[in-house]
Structures are given as C-alpha cells and as structure tokens.
C-alpha cells in the first residue's frame, strides 16, 4: 500500500513536471509566432502613433496575414493623410535560404506590401521597393524566433 502510494506520488510529480514544461513551450510559441509568422512586438517601430512599420511572413512565403493587412491598412490611412510622404518598402528574408532566392523572395514580399498599400488608395509613385534578401537581419541570432522576426517587410519614410 505504502509502495503504491509512493508510485502514485512519483507519477503526480512526473506528470506535473511534464505539464509545466509543456505549458512553457506552448506559451512561448503562442506569444511569438502563429503559423510560422511572427506576431510579437519586439523589433517593431512606428511610422506614427498606432502605425507599425513592419509586417511578417511565413518561411518562403510572401502572402499577407490578417494582422499584416491590418497593419498595411493603417499605413495606407497614414499615407493618405500625409500626402507629401514617400516611402521605401524593404523586403527581407531569413538566413535559412540561398542568397539569390532570398533576394527574389525579399522583392516579392516588398511588392506584396506595396500592392496592398496601393489597393487602399496610395499612389504607386509614392512607394519604392528594395530587397535586401538575407543581408540585413534585424535579429542576428540563429534561432526560429530571430528568423521569424527577420522574415519581414519594413515601410521606411523616404523623405
């Protein structure tokens, strides 16, 4: 009986340890990324109050998430209000792809953002694009978190 209890206790300890560790990893993933796209606020800067400057992408993808569209609509509204502002959209990739493909991927990401800004009423003449491929990481670490922060397009005020 005593022996049984000891085993039972051991199981409780083991189980709770597993539960805690499972919680901590799940929590971390939830905070930082969803479906391979960074959702956190680290590294994000602002073009104006409430107007984030960047959006994030999934590995090898250039499609816009709901959150990205929301950010770009805010940028478009801000640009429509500030008619003299011109911007450069910088497209970036993480370090886990070949250099030349990443240049093309960065270009595609920057243009995805530009196209969306244009559908919300910003003239294409006010938006230039440039791809940096994997050349300008914002987070220099070699970790999934850093890579998700580096897969980005950043709208930068050009004038």
């Amino acid at each position: 009986m005593k022996f049984n209890k000891a085993i039972k206790n051991l199981f409780i300890v083991l189980f709770s340890t597993l539960l805690i560790s499972a919680c901590s990893t799940a929590k971390k993933a939830n905070v930082d990324t969803a479906n391979d796209v960074y959702t956190g606020t680290d590294t994000v800067e602002f073009l104006a109050k409430g107007v984030p400057d960047r959006i994030f992408f999934a590995t090898n993808k250039s499609s816009l998430t709901t959150a990205s569209r929301d950010t770009l609509r805010k940028q478009a509204t801000w640009m429509r209000k500030n008619k003299n502002v011109t911007v450069t959209v910088e497209g970036h990739a993480d370090e886990r792809g070949t250099r030349e493909y990443n240049l093309a991927l960065g270009e595609r990401r920057a243009n995805a953002a530009k196209d969306y800004l244009m559908t919300y009423g910003v003239s294409g003449k006010r938006i230039s694009v440039i791809s940096y491929g994997k050349e300008r990481p914002v987070n220099p670490a070699s970790s999934p978190l850093a890579w998700s922060q580096n897969r980005r397009s950043v709208t930068v005020k050009a004038n």
């Binding site: 240049l103 093309a104 694009v129 440039i130």
Partner: peptide
Amino acid sequence: GMTFAPRFSPDGKKIIMSFAKDGNS
C-alpha cells in the same frame, strides 16, 4: 528594377541574370 544572380555565357558574350519586375523575378 533589381537585377541579380548574374553569370556569363560560356562564350563570354552574354550575361544571364534575374530581373525583378513588379516583384516577380
């Protein structure tokens, strides 16, 4: 727009490369 990934042809007369037009390379 951006041109990248250049290489010479074997006779040296041409350069082959990617050109990104409206985001498409």
